[in-house]
Amino acid sequence: MALYENPEIPEGINVTAEHPLKDFVLLLLAATGILLAAVLALSLLAGYLVRYVPFAQEQALASRLSTEFQRANSDASKQKQAYLQALANRLAANMDLPKDMSITVHYSTDKTVNAMATLGGNIIIFQGLIDVLPNENALAMVMAHEIAHVRNRHPIVALGRGFAVLLAISSLTGVGDELMQRWVSNMSMITLFSFSRSQEHEADVDALQALLKTYGHVEGAAAFFEYAAKQPRLELTQLLSTHPGLEDRVAQIQQFAQEHDAAGKHELRALPDFIMLHEPQAPATATCD
């Protein structure tokens, strides 16, 4: 008769000897990576597709959403706004805007050192910005930069991207419904817009071209960036965090000047006196929260 016995079988043949946390961390990282890539792809796609929204639609959207643009309510403000609008029109004439596109400039008495472009060709210039600029040429540079954003449809691209990301996050996690609603239902999205470095660069180049065509030279264009570079960083983070390095931008402007300008001193236009005058500060506005 054959022998019968039950030897002990060593452990660990049917169980992988691997710490469960290791598997967990690896899988989590991989899943997060794929998720991020998907969200990024989605946002790029949305940003790409949204360019095909007609400008008229964008304007309609902006006027429906934006009840917050400050109205010029005093004579002084109206005068300033008219001056800014005229400047914008002069620059826009040299920027090949598409036929259906129009620029609307809004003036804000707010002390914020900023200017911004938002949906529907709306540009907001703050008194705070005007106060730090030495001449019209510097203001024109900032203005042309914002017009270039509008011309290149940057605000609606940013809107599309932001919307796609938010949609993805809220549908994936089931959280953020409130955020969604708040975002869609009011215009606080102005402050959510942030343009990428390449978009800022594109806008800078276009603005320089416009300045060259309008004034025949680009002298004074770097004034705002030179001013901003001298400021302590903290105060300006809001405005400049997404902008290319200030030194880079100044250098870019100087290089452009060397390539396109005739040598010698150019005449700079002064800002009109009335624009430097302050009126009593309006109560804090929602656009600068």
Partner: peptide, 13 residues
């Protein structure tokens, strides 16, 4: 010819 029986073995995955 089987000379020795060593009992149950199993494998799973």
């Amino acid at each position: 010819t089987v000379v020795k029986h060593l009992g149950l073995v199993n494998g799973s995955t």
